[in-house]
Design a protein around this nucleic acid. Structure first.
Length: 486
DNA sequence: TTTTGAGTTGTTCGA
DNA sequence: GTCGAACAACTCAAA
């Protein structure tokens, strides 16, 4: 037998947002290296700064860790759980175990990158090997650049450049066995990730966190909805989308596995959305301040309203616009909202109520089980018109026509706004226009059983167009006219 | 260097 | 009911 002593020194695998065994390059490399493997998760919200994990995501994290822990145990390893700052936690572990290497998969959020730099510096000081791998993305920031060597700021050319490179689909199998090491840590319960008040019942019914749940979800999507994705993806009243977002966010499955599973023309439209996720991560990397600041600086002066009542009505799903309220209640109840409806509610907050997009981003951050800093930031900036590929200023969603177009029978509204369930579909998206007799028959009393619209959309649209014109510096009737020097 | 064409997801109005 | 045009100007990407 070879007797190189260093071959048997333990290797720590630091799990972050890559809670899977298949196609997990850090884990595979550690196993291949030989010697004991110490998988570790360190709960360190203080390392995340302003964007520490929200309540719904913490719920998911709890069960994702539970699932990962079981899978590792089945292979012979043991997930060590800790809390506190990652750099100091890893330092202690390296010293306690005599580990000679720490492997992990990269994350791209600004705070996560700072955390990683601190870990690298610590390891260098300790004389321990630190190696980072790519598990999260098809292409990491810097791999897809425009002709001038800079980052793309428009999606379509970025997308074409990705396709030209070929979407990576090679994956690594899960290890068959792992040489473990007994090491004491915290119990999962000690992290107190689950809510103290019991509000997660419906979330639990809707989702199965963990690698097996992710695989099952992808199977379901690949066998059915993917074929009609382009038509059905806009229908919140149908099961037409993949619902992969929380699994992807927590790395219970990686994008390469998705590309591998969905090869073929039928999935092109869906894979385009996966590339949007890539684009969002690249943008966040190159423009890290966009989590809080508009990408386009003229929006710093945008005349936002401080409308506390409006914000609360929006959060609770009591705006009086059924499509908006249905979405907000689906979010609150299940930790997720259909993407089409995300655009509708976001447009309503930002354009109809003129409430800052950051406020909406924060609410989503706390309530979504798939809250992802890159995707969330890109989505909200796009809606507000201040981000990459920004919406033209005149693109203001009409919550009524969007409802009639994408929830034509009102089934989605009926599910999430049950007090309107008996309204005929003719009026379900605009109950304030329904004849009194129709309302009475349906048991709807506006202002009592369901709110009247908190703002008139036509008025709000005009107001938003005016505010946008002013922010952009175009002339406005109320502004002093510049003297023309003719 | 200059020029040209394109740019996720919309709405409204008038023919 | 359906259809096309108008709704700004600007930035980005690439020829």
């Amino acid at each position: 037998m070879p007797s190189d002593p260093s071959a048997n020194a333990p290797c720590i695998v630091w799990f972050r947002q890559d809670f899977r065994l298949e196609d997990n390059p850090a884990l595979s490399a550690a196993v291949k290296r030989g010697g004991p493997v110490i998988p570790i998760f360190i709960w360190s919200p203080e390392d995340e700064g302003r964007w520490r994990m929200g309540a719904a995501s913490r719920w998911w994290l709890h069960y994702s860790l539970e699932s990962l822990s079981k899978s590792l145990t089945a292979l012979g390893a043991h997930l060590v759980i800790r809390d506190g700052s990652v750099a100091s936690g890893l330092k202690e572990l390296v010293e306690a175990t005599g580990a000679e290497a720490v492997f992990w998969n990269r994350r791209w959020e600004p705070a996560a990158q700072k955390q990683e730099e601190a870990v690298q510096a610590m390891l260098k000081k300790q004389g321990v090997e630190g190696r980072a791998f790519n598990a999260a993305l098809l292409f990491e920031p810097g791999e897809v650049l425009n002709g001038s060597g800079g980052p793309y700021k428009v999606f379509t050319p970025f997308y074409r450049a990705c396709l030209a490179k070929g979407l990576p689909s090679r994956t690594q199998p899960a290890p068959e066995a792992i040489e473990g090491s007994r090491l004491k840590g915290l119990k999962l319960e000690d992290l107190e990730l689950l809510p103290k008040i019991h509000w997660a019942g419906e979330i639990a019914k809707a989702w199965t966190p963990g690698e097996a749940g992710a695989q099952k979800q992808l199977d379901w999507f690949a066998h059915g909805p993917v074929a009609d994705y382009m038509e059905e993806r806009n229908r919140p009243d149908h099961e037409g989308v993949s619902r992969m977002s929380p699994h992807l966010h927590f790395g219970e499955i990686g994008p390469r596995q998705i590309v591998h599973r969905l090869r073929g023309d039928v999935a092109q439209g869906y894979l385009r959305e996966v590339v949007w996720r890539e684009f969002a991560h690249h943008m966040l990397h190159f423009y890290p301040e966009t989590t809080d600041e508009p990408l386009h600086p003229e929006f710093v002066h945008f005349p936002w309203e401080k409308d506390v009542k409006g914000r609360h009505a929006w959060q609770k799903g009591l705006t009086g616009y059924p499509m908006v309220d249905a979405g907000m209640r689906q979010l609150w109840t299940t930790g997720w909202m259909h993407n089409r409806v995300r655009m509708i509610v976001a447009s309503f907050l930002v354009k109809d109520l003129l409430i800052p997009w950051q406020s909406g981003a924060k609410w989503f951050w706390d309530t979504l089980v798939d809250a992802d800093l890159a995707n969330n930031t890109m989505g909200w900036q796009w809606t507000a018109g201040c981000g990459a590929d920004a919406a033209p200023y005149f693109r203001i969603f009409n919550p009524v026509s969007q409802g009639e177009k994408f929830d034509p029978d009102g089934a989605y509204v009926r599910e999430w706004v049950p007090e309107l369930a008996k309204l005929p579909k003719e009026w379900i998206h605009k109950p304030w226009e329904a004849p009194a007799a129709v309302l009475e028959t349906a048991g709807v009393s506006l202002g009592e059983t369901y709110p009247k619209p908190i703002v008139d959309h036509k008025f709000a649209r005009g107001r938003a167009l005016q505010a946008l014109a002013r922010a952009k510096g175009s002339p406005h009737p109320d502004d002093p006219q510049p003297q023309l020097d003719l």
